[in-house]
Nucleic acid binder design. Structure first.
Lengths: 264, 264
DNA sequence: TCGTTCGCATTGACTGGACAATGCCAACGG
DNA sequence: CCGTTGGCATTGTCCAGTCAATGCGAACGA
């Protein structure tokens, strides 16, 4: 057998202890010095290398000057389909989502509005010209004053200019309804979900710990003519969300499946 | 301003060059020695620390003894909904998916079948008893002989035992149809998507590069009575997949949105 | 001509340090 | 009693190396 390196041994041992519950979420790991003794390594950096593996796997976080701790993991339900509920939601979707979860947690969002050159990914999906500017409605959503996700909506400028869509404040009845009133009811959507590591700006805006991947959830919504009306880029941190869809076979039966919560 | 550390500077500079296209996918980065000169650091480990940041972000990969290279990123469409297509697929879904993409690539899968104690996440969703064993149909799917995703399906033992569901070979008409023939047509599904870093076993089975996050896509399927019939745990590497859903407002119009491919 | 071997540039693992930054907590002072 | 300060354990950054592993390509040999 190929003898694994020391730092891999350290990482493997600690990872096992985390997986089997010997080290519970929130528990403190041995310090670097202690590990150095335990494994008989004479250099701190070797131990650090092992710990760094787990940090980058998102399993532990260092807290200076306390030590390393097993990370907590509390995903909230992120439900793209709620947007197209049977009845249009009466309040803003995000606030609605939180209130309906009955936990009495504080939901808040910061809203900025701007006119920008869209990134090419947005431009392709919105089918706008290269030179065209578009409207951007950028939201950072907070739960209990901690950032939860980013939500950048783009729409053609001529479509939304002057409307409530571009007001940097909560729109109680939802911006989708605003678009409907402007003659573009959103009836179809294409969701794309990319899994990747966050960019530095996202780490900053979302206050992400190391080793936290994100989902980039791009929603392209269409009106009845099949014209793309809005492209929304959601950045959804993996340590705080589960993305949930419900599917039904066409002409399938009625009963709703109950949701068996409990992370994997 | 807080002066950023040297290794952060190196990481930031290189990251910028990758983002703006100065360093294209596949391009070689400066070697550790070159960077040590460029930034006037006298220790190799500092340079390595900077490079390690980018490795863990999945942006570059080291290839010994050549140097570091900008990573390529070619996502394939992963479409959970295809399972519930209007017409049941005539061939196995995975093979079907590949063939329909018209690229003439080779699709293959390794299939193992076993009777196991399910992980608790599966047990909860399948609503089986703690002591109950369940049937496991484990598939590793390959595209051009490279692993693409893992697909572990669990079903109650009494339901599938002796059926084709438990044969360790391709089932041309699809295992879902087998379940239907056994009196449990799958008409509803609940999809949960967790975003996380892979476990070592997943790294091994999928041959994942460093800094590659995965989506754990758990599908719980129900028969018309609302009974969970099958739980499938898909592990989907972020560097090779985009997860795609199409949504439609109930009673919405017909036209299908076209898909504007091109990664973000 | 063609296969083999060996040099070599590069990354991987590890040593054994130094000094800085952080934030908790105990000792101290008013 | 309460606020301030300074000690201290711990992690963060960086230094200056050694030897190992890898795989490509050039030099070599049959």
């Amino acid at each position: 057998m190929r003898p694994t390196s020391v730092y891999e041994q350290i990482a493997d041992d600690l990872r096992t202890k985390i997986a089997d519950g010997t080290l519970q979420p929130g528990a403190q790991l041995p310090t670097e010095s202690e590990l150095r003794e335990q494994y008989g390594v004479s250099s701190r950096s070797t131990v650090r290398q092992g710990l760094m593996v787990l940090v980058n796997e998102g399993l532990i976080v260092p807290k200076r000057p306390k030590g390393y701790f097993v990370r907590r993991w509390q995903p909230m339900v992120y439900r793209p389909q709620s947007e197209f509920g049977k009845r249009p939601p009466e309040v803003d979707i995000f606030t609605h989502l939180i209130n309906s979860d009955g936990s009495g947690r504080s939901a808040k969002q910061e809203i900025e509005v701007a006119i920008v050159q869209p990134p090419s990914a947005v431009q392709e999906r919105l089918r706008t010209d290269e030179a065209d500017s578009v409207a951007l409605r950028r939201r950072t959503r907070f739960l209990d004053d901690k950032p939860y996700n980013l939500n950048d909506s783009y729409a053609p400028l001529d479509l939304v200019q002057g409307s409530e869509w571009m007001s940097p404040a909560d729109v109680a009845r939802g911006t989708n309804l605003v678009l409907a009133e402007l003659g573009h009811e959103l009836v179809q959507a294409l969701d794309e979900i990319y899994i990747r590591m966050p960019r530095p700006e996202e780490v900053r805006r979302l206050d992400l710990g190391p080793g936290t991947p994100v989902a980039e959830h791009i929603v392209t919504t269409f009106d009845p003519d099949g014209t793309p009306v809005q492209v929304t880029v959601n950045v959804v941190p993996g340590d705080r969300h589960v993305i949930v869809y419900e599917r039904r076979k066409p002409d399938g039966a009625e009963p709703q499946p109950r949701i068996p919560w409990g992370a994997p």
